[in-house]
């Protein structure tokens, strides 16, 4: 179970305090999933960072009784001077997992070839994305945080991510955060809309979809 209880997040800007998330609460049980719809700047990524634990809420409590991934396929966590392999080792050490059995999977999934042992700074954008996704899959979590990662990349990469995440790991919980209502309809069993800092729950995904389409800003 993950429970988000009365969480608010305020940032300081030159024009004073800006409340990005305003008293948000929801729960997610093991094996369940939820989609959160929001327009650009609605605070989707902030919410994901709070749930991931990368930042602290200004007020409120986040409880995690299952293991929660870092934001899926997040490329920023790379040390670009390190090779793909070094990055795999680093992530494995942080999570206490042996990296050696994972090398074949990561090599196969990323299709990096010799570049797997070259510094990440020499990678193309596509290569970096593939590595980021593979590293997220290398560590097994109870709950995955997905921040529009599925939208990037070409069709083939898309399909392979789909297989890894939604087929091989369909017993896991996930939180999918996106502006794209269709992917929520495709993958999620429940949905909320994040709007003006408030999280609006809906009984069905279709209702959330209709509300989202009817309120373009």
């Amino acid at each position: 179970m993950i429970s988000i209880e009365n969480v608010s997040k305020t940032y300081h800007t030159r024009l004073g305090q800006r409340t990005i998330l305003d008293n948000i609460s929801f729960k997610l049980a093991r094996g369940r999933n939820i989609g959160i719809l929001g327009r650009n700047g609605a605070g989707k990524s902030t919410l994901i960072r709070l749930i991931a634990g990368a930042e602290r809420p200004t007020s409120g409590v986040i409880r995690r009784d299952m293991s929660v991934s870092w934001p899926l396929a997040f490329g920023g966590a790379f040390q670009t001077h390190l090779t793909g392999l070094d990055n795999l080792k680093f992530v494995c050490r942080v999570y206490g997992v042996d990296y050696k059995p994972l090398i074949p999977f990561v090599e196969d999934f990323t299709e990096l070839g010799v570049y797997f042992r070259e510094p990440v700074m020499h990678y193309s954008a596509g290569m970096t994305t593939r590595l980021a996704f593979a590293l997220s899959m290398a560590i097994e979590f109870d709950c995955f945080l997905i921040d529009e990662a599925m939208v990037v990349g070409d069709q083939r990469f898309h399909e392979r991510c789909h297989i890894e995440l939604f087929q091989k790991r369909k017993d896991r919980a996930f939180i999918l955060v996106t502006h794209d209502a269709n992917s929520i309809r495709m993958y999620c069993e429940s949905a909320c809309v994040l709007r003006n800092g408030k999280l609006i729950p809906f009984a069905t995904v279709d209702e959330a979809f209709e509300f989202y389409e009817a309120n373009p800003n």
Binding site: A52, A54, W70
Partner: peptide, 9 residues
């Protein structure tokens, strides 16, 4: 900075 995305760091 970005390493803090791993909650244990």
């Amino acid at each position: 900075f970005n390493l803090l995305y791993h909650r244990n760091v």
